[in-house]
């Protein structure tokens, strides 16, 4: 699975720290999600989707084999 969080974050001109603070998680968690090292919960994915104004499907994209 890949994601567009880094792109959406850049569009909103947010740092990882600012995004983490808004979502109530640590900066390491945001970093881990962006690098596909951690898959967020549905709740966190929905919060991101609402914050960026895009659907969850636009944020997280399934790849072949997922």
């Amino acid at each position: 699975m890949k994601n567009n969080i880094k792109v959406e974050r850049a569009k909103k001109d947010l740092t990882q720290e600012q995004l983490a603070e808004t979502l109530g998680v640590t900066r390491q968690t945001i970093n881990a999600i962006e690098k596909n090292k951690y898959l967020p919960s549905t709740l966190l994915a929905l919060k991101m989707s609402a914050l960026f104004g895009v659907t969850v499907n636009e944020l997280f994209i399934l790849e072949e084999g997922d």
Binding site: K6, Q16, R27, Q28, N31, A32, E34, K35, K37
Partner: peptide, 11 residues
């Protein structure tokens, strides 16, 4: 280990 790996990857 996770935090250390993510610290070095900071962007």
């Amino acid at each position: 280990r996770t935090r250390r790996a993510l610290e070095t990857d900071e962007e």
